[in-house]
């Protein structure tokens, strides 16, 4: 039997509209009883009595199977028919759980250690997570257009980020919660975070050092941002007032100079000042050698380029940290000092 002819006839059947659900080939196989391999079909025909098959007229078993298939026949998904320039906001007007047949995106979500991530059909993960398909830019634009008549214009003088920071240096961050349970409240709503750039505060060296010591980890030196988080009071307003109070207290405290601060020793210093350390004394003694009297020498050597070179080398070694470059500079300085060897 000509396989191609059978195929052609089967295309006339009313069941062929959905390419994914075509079972014409199945029927054909069923008719021939074997696969589309012509050799095997011939073999079948040789062994058994040939059945005369009228295409279009099915046997009883076939009808039953077809009926079963009819019951579960489904329409092709909607996204296949969507034009590219459609109005998405009318397709997905509000928040809705994910529906694979409506969303025209080839999404994959989920983890399977042996296989590729699962597709969107029958994907519980995609349905579980919140989607924001109702908040696409055109939707937001529509919202904004609708609300615009109720809004005041953006204040003048606050166009750029810098201007905003200059006029409103403090950022207050709070969170509101609403529960659908016997209580709508959440205790986390009392938390208030304040972010502030330290460069906006007027602090001199001492004040800055004291401020940073008081504040500790709350300051990020890379971004220059001070973050204060409060939750010690039960109400948000109280926490906000407390934050403001803390900021004011910190500022004023860092400007005051207490008596006990005079006890700050060289060990507490956060940077290395050459003249406060023994290195300076040893240098003076070296220069004054063999006499032990260093009082006369201090003024003499102050302007000496070697002194400046050496003091800079030692200071850098401590302040910048020890690495190939600082050590090399130190070596240069000491060679000149101890052996009188000038390299440059």
């Amino acid at each position: 039997m000509n396989v191609a002819k059978l195929l052609k006839f089967s295309r006339c059947s009313p069941l062929h509209f959905s390419p994914s659900y075509s079972h014409s080939s199945f029927r054909l196989q069923h008719a021939t009883g074997t696969s589309s391999n012509p050799q095997e079909a011939d073999k079948f025909q040789e062994d058994e009595f040939r059945v005369f098959v009228i295409p279009g007229k099915n046997s009883v078993t076939e009808k039953r199977q077809e009926r079963r298939k009819l019951k579960f026949k489904a329409q092709p998904p909607r996204y296949l028919k969507m034009p590219v320039d459609q109005d998405w906001t009318s397709v997905w007007p509000g928040p809705r759980t994910f529906h694979p047949a409506v969303v025209p995106l080839p999404l994959r979500q989920g983890y399977d250690k042996k296989r590729v991530a699962q597709g969107k059909f029958g994907n519980a993960e995609l349905m579980k997570v919140p989607n924001f398909l109702h908040l696409t830019p055109p939707a937001i634009k529509k919202h904004c257009d609708a609300i615009r008549k109720f809004c005041t214009p953006w204040p003048q003088g606050l166009e750029t980020e810098m201007q905003m920071e200059k006029h409103f240096p403090i950022t207050v961050i709070t969170s509101d919660y609403c529960h659908s349970s016997p209580t709508i409240r959440d205790i986390k709503a009392r938390i208030v975070t304040i972010k502030l750039k330290l460069s906006t505060l007027e602090l001199d060296d001492h004040a800055r050092d004291k401020f940073l010591r008081l504040v500790g980890d709350r300051y990020n030196p890379k971004t220059d941002v001070l973050t204060i988080v409060t939750d010690r009071c039960p109400m948000k307003k109280q926490n906000y007032d407390y934050c403001m109070y803390v900021l004011t207290a910190l500022f004023h405290e860092s400007w005051t100079f207490e008596e006990w601060e005079k006890e700050k020793s060289t060990l507490d210093m956060e940077y290395y000042e050459w003249k406060d350390h023994p290195s300076y004394q040893t240098y003076l003694k070296l220069k004054a050698y063999p006499s032990q009297d260093t009082s006369n020498i201090e003024q003499e050597i102050g302007q000496d380029p070697l002194t400046q070179k050496y003091s800079k080398a030692v200071t850098d070694l401590f302040n910048q940290g020890e690495d190939v470059y600082t050590l090399a500079r130190y070596k240069e300085a000491t060679l000149e000092l101890l052996l009188g060897q000038k390299t440059s």
Partner: peptide
């Protein structure tokens, strides 16, 4: 460091 400063470091 302070006990032997200044010294010539040789790597």
């Amino acid at each position: 460091f302070e006990s032997i400063d200044p010294f010539v470091p040789i790597h």
